[in-house]
Amino acid sequence: MSVDNLKCPYQEGKLKATESLVARVKSEIIHKKLEKTNLVWLELNGCAGNIISLLNGQSPDFQYLITQMTNFMYSNSLVAAEGSEAMDHLFRVIGSDFILAVEGAVSLKEDGIYNIIGRQKEHAVTGLEAVKKLGEKAAYVIAVGACAAHGGVSAARPNPTECVGVHEVLQRKVIQLPGCPCHPDWFMGTLAYIMLYGDPPMDSRNRPLMFYSTTIHDRCPRRSYFERGIFASKLGEKTCMFKMGCRGPVTRIDCPIRQWNGHVNWPIEDDSPCIGCAQFGFPDAMEPFVNFDTTKGE
């Protein structure tokens, strides 16, 4: 339950990346070297779990984000206004300098009418239309969570509403933060980096390297069990869950060191296998999530 036993300065540096970037943003805003940025949070076809996850952020917390760091313009889950007034709010941002964060997938079926996000007079605004309008004008676009990054669960087979990731409908770079949900630190660290320096260093699929560089398997505290061939046959055991379907070996993300919800726990520490939620291909390529038939596999 603790990261106190971390001794490797490289890992520790990575773990503290978000905190130190945000601290720098804080100090530059206080010293008027940096201005608050306009931020729009657009929810599309998904579960709205990424904004819920963002509200769990600690360093800094959500209050700091919306009062000190950004002009937080819009979120369907949180905005006080409603109806056409809220829609006006959202689209009024076009013309200003803003960062667009998107959660949820873009539904393409029948021009997007399976996901109506609001109405402007008689016109029903689809998620597809909103993400195109805003995405083309934004200074940066961040796809937050699995659905926005690559379709995620919203695009699970047979993909009934033809869902795709945000980058599929925009002719521009989209910063990818896959995960189900996105950890608040991954988003906050990326946002802070953008505000200070612009695009963060990314891999070939536009994932920030400061979070997505290393597989779970490479930093897994149960790695020694894997090396010695000691495998769990049921959940709740403290050994390696590779044979039960753990996707740690293919999933590039920092859960083993970052952990979740104030850094108290994470799936493998909770004696359950990684299901690869932060890797492209989730969920279809990651199934079965839990497999007791450890000799045959799927």
């Binding site: 600690q58 917390d61 189900c180 979740w260 919800n261 104030g262 726990n265 799936p267 909770d270």
Partner: peptide
Amino acid sequence: SLEFSRKAHQMLAILGGKAPHNHG
């Protein structure tokens, strides 16, 4: 209230691995 709703999820994660979308 944000601190307390966050901590309710923290309790959930202590037994369930993470929240939202727990593993426990």
